[in-house]
Design a binder for these strands. Structure first.
Lengths: 346, 346
DNA sequence: CCCTTCACGCGAACCGGTTCGACAACTGGC
DNA sequence: GCCAGTTGTCGAACCGGTTCGCGTGAAGGG
């Protein structure tokens, strides 16, 4: 079932079959139909490896996603799903690459062995040697997220600074005076993850501008850590009345910690943050949050990458998104008596 | 930077370079080192397409996952992550394929164009034409899930019947007499999704055996649907004191619905079900549930597939898992007065 | 009626690896 | 001293497509 077989059965040459399929040279209706009949009959499909070898394009995009061992969040799933879906629309497959500790191995595999035409990177760091590497080789890549100096790159990113600030403003507008930030784990911050850094900046500056008393915390990417973190927050300053979370995976634990401490959301305590929309709706009460438009971002990333592949000399494009806060049910006015809330039992 | 270039610079033939790399024929230490030096110097990596074309193996596994448009659950993310991780350990890449409405296109693309050596399928249906198709072509595939007649197939599955029954038994042991099942959407049931069917069976039979009053409900794969579903359950039989959910995505909404109805979990109402462990811990209170060992299943699936690829004539293998129920905080003894619970307001 | 033009199809080369058969040089047994 | 076996290397063929240059027959212009 290779092209030679088709050619033989149709009584033409291999090149004619190729041209009939690609349309890059005229083929008479007669022969075209003859060929098509044979193809349909045998269910022939051209071999992808051979095609890739011949024309240098694999029709595959690489998606570099966080290493195993970290906890996956719903947001990441949404990214993956939307990237795959968008890629399919452009007739590209998606090859998953875990960028683990030995980022070299799988990374080199993708690029060095030319398994993909281009790559989409997630979980960007402010200083990201993967990206430096790609830029140096002028390899077609698009980031979901942006580095400290994003000007020369292709990316679709979120304005984490503005989003965190918007959360603070929202809480300040409701009268909250003592708030906390639940950030990603310290490990992530040290590693330079942009969302953790820019979110922290935005939070800190906005709180200062509004004259709020603000504390910041790092929290593990899982529910139990979230619970511990809330306990710590209420221990450090029982008068805290609201928090902002950049940590989606900890959200369930945060709610649990508040419930355990006898704080009712949103009556006694307000919670907001930056979370993928669909996941903000899975908690009770639903989270008022800046919705990360993961689906849109995945689509945009693919769109940019395809454009870059089609026009190798095009100037870098990017999209900086700053979705508004979706009002749901987890924030409310601060108590007028901003002292310690209802006693933590015993 | 192709193999000919390396050969020229090292002063040997192309075949010698190939043998030096693959080790399939002896090469003298001298030449090997000469070649290795050139390779290191130029950072050469063999082209994957060419290699695939030559030896007929792509070193890529296909992962067929649910079509976009459906709601992704955390379980699916865990599957994807663990499959990718396990595949990397065996030196395989993973190609994602959405098996959408036009299952043909992306499916044919994977198989017909020989982009992958084998495939792993998720979201299996009792009657699954994709699988019939694969079996007919003797294409190396492994299912995460099993069909109605799984004997000739390779799969790693969950004993949904037993798991649902275990949930019912657990509730019955706690004294609950009126329970409900929150199943996947009716669309899924009609489509023949095995978890929905087998879970329903297990639930129904176990409830009958224990003499419980049981109702079953279909529920959309999202939080709002879960809330609506709970309202319906409590409306239909306010004396219901417990439910079993097979629907992970609805879990948040289920909790919300119970809270809205003034039922406290687990004091007034017990909740259990079949849910991926890590996600059972994100809700408040943590869900007592049969933990889907997604990570283990992904690893096993890859292991089976690799074995099948290495031994094309091997007899089908499979693993049927039935993890125990993890006791957490969402179930408790039934009230001794099993009439209508605390009044649904108004 | 001759010469150009064009549509159509063919053969060969190429993409970058792998693998087979052949062969030279060296080793060792008898 | 000859033959058998081993080791190391090479050239050529092959995997299954794409693409370039050329040839042929028919159409069209003068």
């Amino acid at each position: 079932m290779n092209i030679g077989e088709i050619a033989r059965r149709a009584g033409v040459s291999r090149s004619t079959v190729s041209y009939a399929l690609s349309g890059k040279r005229p083929v008479s209706d007669d022969t075209r139909q003859k060929i098509q009949r044979v193809i349909d009959e045998l269910g022939y499909r051209p071999n992808a490896s051979a095609r890739a070898l011949a024309n240098g394009r694999t029709s595959t995009l690489g998606l570099v996603f966080p290493p195993a061992g970290t906890h996956y969040t719903g947001m990441q799933l949404d990214f993956i799903g939307s990237v795959v879906e968008a890629a399919a629309a452009y007739d590209y497959d998606v090859l998953l690459s875990p960028s683990g500790a030995d980022s070299d191995r799988s990374f080199q595999r993708l690029l060095g062995e030319r398994r993909v035409d281009g790559a989409i990177l997630m979980e960007i760091r402010l200083q990201d040697d993967r990206i430096d590497h790609l830029v140096a080789e002028n390899f077609p890549a698009v980031c979901i997220g942006r580095t400290a100096q994003p000007d020369g790159d292709w990316w679709v990113g979120l304005d984490h600074t503005a989003l965190a600030a918007a959360c603070v403003d929202h809480l300040a507008d409701l009268g909250h005076r003592r708030i906390a930030l639940v950030n990603r784990p310290e490990r992530m911050l040290r590693a330079g993850y942009e969302s953790a850094h820019r979110g922290l900046d935005g939070f800190t500056k906005a709180a200062a501008e509004r004259g709020l008393t603000a504390r910041t915390y790092n929290c593990g990417d899982d529910a139990p850590s979230g619970q511990v973190c809330v306990e710590q927050i209420l221990h450090d300053d029982p008068a805290t009345t609201a928090l902002v979370t950049l940590n989606e995976a900890a959200l369930g634990g945060i709610y649990r910690g508040l419930a355990a401490a006898g704080r009712h959301v949103p009556r006694d305590f307000s919670v907001t943050g930056v979370v993928a929309g669909r996941w903000a709706e899975t908690v009770t009460p639903q989270l008022t949050a800046a919705d990360v438009p993961a689906e849109q971002m995945g689509h945009l990333a693919v769109e940019l990458l395809v454009e870059r592949l089609d026009h190798p000399e095009a100037a870098p494009h990017h999209h900086l998104l700053a979705p508004p806060i979706s009002l749901r049910a987890s924030t409310g006015p601060a108590h007028t008596h901003p002292d310690a809330g209802p006693g933590s039992n015993a």
